[in-house]
Amino acid sequence: MSHIILGGSANALAIARLLKAPNSIILDFNDCSPAMSTKYAKGLRLLSKNEQEVLETLLSLKAPPPKTLYPTSDYWVEFIAKNSSTLQEHGFLFFKTPYNCSETILDKLKFFQIMSPCFPTPLTRLADKAPTRSEEIIKPRKSFIDSSLVDKGFLYTTKYVRNASTYVKQQRLNSNIYNHLSIAGLFLAGKLHTVIYTRKLLEYPHPGGTAVMVSTIDSEEIRARLRKLAESALRHISYEGIFELEAILEDETLWLIEINGRFWLQHAIGEQLGINFPKLYHQALTGCITPTEAKSRVTALWIHEGLPLAFLKAPSYMKKIVLKELLKKRNWAFAHIDLKDLTPFIKFIRCKLKK
């Protein structure tokens, strides 16, 4: 069997490390991606961003079947959805998500149109050149344009945006970052299979940036509400597979923000709880999955090595939360640091210094 990890970011690195499997390959466009240098997988740089050429490269891989695909970004979710028939014909394993379902979770405007009649969802409309109202923020409509990642972080004007139609204006929720919540794991045959619950503690840039530190959620009440929301929302779009659902708790309302149909950035925190999501994902695709429950009373943190910079630039209330959680929770998972596999971390530092 083979494991084909699509993308080279920190979540791809975590997949390779958790699988520790022979015949693991990481495909990415960026040779500077830290995951490309892990000892647990062979890194293969894609020289062209042309979709047909990417497909041909994937089909030409000399890898023993079955060949499991592990998507780590929205680009790869869309790529698999577009080419699912061809990939299946060539022996690749993945969860076949209908293209309209993929479009729903990838496009923030369509997501609002489909989900808002049934779930509390921030009012979202297509961006324009008109001045942005104080109660709105501007987000990319999709996280990728072609194969290029759109910069993280909220905008407050479209003045310098080349094409406003690639962005949306969305209702601003005033909840602090501690109430940015998520439930993530596997959704199989209309039911949650194995999940974890986390909250964002620090992000960069702020607001609207990538998580730099997340923590497990202790509250049983919040976990139950997230579970109920996830079950209903994922059934509503007929989704199946690996997922992360993000929500914001504000004034007792749990707002549905987005669903990621891929391995999310912090899935390595599952290892601290006794859950190996890449192995469970592979087992689900090969029909031999067994239920796995998180270790009871175990709490954990996921930490990106950009934490010091994000901490320095964070508002004072966020700094207090971070320090409290660091003292409270002793089980830590890092995005890049692993004493048994240090090369990716060294590469991460070198690439950041170059930039």
Rank of each mutant, 00 (worst) to 15 (best):
P64N: 06
P64R: 01
P64H: 04
P64A: 13
P65F: 12
P65I: 05
T68H: 13
L69K: 05
Y70F: 15
P71N: 07
T72V: 05
T72C: 14
S73R: 08
D74T: 07
D74Q: 03
Y75E: 09
W76T: 03
W76K: 00
V77L: 14
V77A: 10
E78C: 04
E78I: 04
F79K: 01
F79R: 01
F79Y: 10
I80D: 10
A81G: 14
K82E: 15
N83G: 08
N83W: 08
N83M: 02
N83D: 06
N83R: 11
T86W: 09
L87I: 08
E89Y: 06
H90V: 03
G91F: 03
G91D: 11
G91N: 09
F92L: 06
L93G: 10
F94D: 14
F94G: 04
F94W: 12
F95P: 14
F95K: 14
T97P: 01
T97E: 11
Y99N: 11
N100E: 15
N100H: 14
C101A: 12
C101V: 11
E103V: 01
T104N: 03
I105C: 09
L106M: 08
L106S: 12
L106I: 03
L106N: 12
D107I: 02
D107C: 02
K108Q: 06
K108S: 08
F112R: 04
Q113H: 02
Q113C: 07
I114Q: 10
M115R: 02
S116G: 07
P117L: 12
P120K: 00
P120F: 02
P120I: 01
P120R: 03
T121M: 11
P122N: 10
L123P: 03
L123I: 15
T124V: 07
T124N: 08
A127G: 08
A127L: 02
D128Y: 00
D128H: 00
D128S: 09
D128A: 01
K129T: 06
K129A: 08
A130V: 00
P131I: 00
P131G: 00
T132E: 02
T132V: 07
T132C: 07
R133M: 02
R133L: 02
R133D: 10
